[in-house]
């Protein structure tokens, strides 16, 4: 894999998290599958980066690789100036507390045999923080759980939305800098989903969080993000501010994604053709540009040469696209 240059990495001094040339591989039987290959992006303090793509594009894997769960095969994850892929043991465990994660399935994220207050206090107990009780009560109140009635219960006594609140409270207890949300609302009902999204926005403001928001739903991502990165088959296709990516999508894949969302507003017969076919298997990705097999604009060069990240023709700052024929 040739190392491409990364114009999308910004030269700002408030960058909290920077991911460079991230590569994650999995053993599938005898074969090695590159779930994430050469992905680079950065997040500034207080920013929310939305990571979108369809299933199998590696977006969740990126989220976990940032946490070093498991550590990536290649590349760097630079958190506050330190490459955490080099850390091990105690140092890694300690650094992880500043990066927290919430997951898609709130019910499977909570140990059924423990009480809510113990679940939330877990990190505080591990690191022997002072005033654990007060802290637990504070975060419970913050996420809208009543410490009086909820603390002594077990997860199965709560609904899915409530469980997600517990997960959020747990992740906030250690006062992290970065919160990685892995499809946090996709298992929830629409009416509950809105509550949790609003809650995440509130928590972000209250605890000065920087967020990575992984989701497949573009509308949800738009609501919560400042910047958006679009992934396809383990590669980054497009990255830029929400307005740039949603108003001026430059990668044909982003355009197709946006066109395929079922919208409530009356029929928008779109000019952009719908995508044909399915996502190829990541076991054996297409040569050159990985999207070319479904791309309406694909030409010969797309099969030969992998497109590098370049400034988008939208002309908007910090908007980059990896396509031979953007726009």
């Amino acid at each position: 894999m040739s190392e491409t240059s990364n114009p999308q990495l910004r030269a700002r001094d408030d960058i909290v998290l920077k991911v460079e040339h991230l590569v994650v591989t999995f053993d599938v039987g005898r074969e090695l599958v590159q779930a994430v290959s050469d992905v680079s992006f950065d997040i500034a303090r207080g920013e929310t980066l939305g990571l979108v793509g369809e299933s199998g594009c590696g977006k969740s894997t990126v989220g976990r690789a940032i946490m070093q769960l498991p550590p990536p095969k290649g590349g760097k994850v630079i958190f506050k100036g330190q490459d955490i892929t080099q850390l091990e043991g105690e140092a890694l465990r300690k650094t992880r507390t500043a990066l927290q994660m919430i997951f898609q399935d709130p019910i499977s994220s909570l140990n059924p045999r423990r009480r809510v207050k113990d679940i939330i206090a877990e990190g505080l107990q591990i690191w022997e923080r002072p005033n654990q009780r007060a802290r637990v009560e504070e975060v419970m109140e913050a996420v809208g759980l009543d410490p009086e009635t909820a603390a002594d219960r077990r997860p199965h006594q709560f609904s899915g939305g409530q469980c997600q609140r517990i997960c959020i409270a747990r992740s906030l207890a250690l006062d992290p800098d970065v919160l990685i949300c892995d499809e946090p609302v996709s298992a929830l009902d629409v009416s509950v989903q809105a509550q949790i999204l609003n809650l995440l926005e509130d928590m972000k403001a209250r605890y000065q969080l920087t967020m990575v928001f992984v989701a497949h739903n573009l509308a949800v991502v738009k609501h919560i993000s400042d910047r958006v990165a679009v992934m396809y088959l383990g590669k980054l296709c497009e990255i830029g501010s929400v307005d740039a990516v949603y108003q001026h999508p430059s990668h044909p894949y982003t355009q197709a994604l946006l066109a395929s969302i079922p919208e409530l507003e009356t029929s928008q017969e779109d000019a952009i053709p719908l995508l044909q076919g399915d996502i190829p298997s990541p076991m054996n990705p297409p040569s050159g540009c990985r999207f070319r097999t479904r791309c309406p604009k694909a030409q010969a060069i797309c099969a030969q040469q992998e497109p590098a990240m370049q400034a988008s023709p939208s002309g908007i700052g910090d908007h980059f696209v990896a396509c031979h024929f953007p726009g």
């Binding site: 609904s159 939305g161 409530q162 009902d189 629409v190 009416s191 509950v192 989903q193 809105a194 509550q195 999204l197 609003n198 926005e201 739903n217 573009l218 509308a219 949800v220 738009k222 609501h223 919560i224 993000s225 400042d226 929400v242 307005d243 949603y246 946006l258 969302i261 919208e263 409530l264 507003e265």
Partner: peptide, 23 residues
């Protein structure tokens, strides 16, 4: 239900109309 669905047409960080409580 209609209002609680996030829309593409809304600008980023629009507050969603959540339905309080649960089913």
């Amino acid at each position: 239900l209609f209002k609680s669905v996030p829309r593409l047409s809304d600008p980023s960080h629009t507050r969603l109309h959540a339905i309080p409580g649960r089913p």
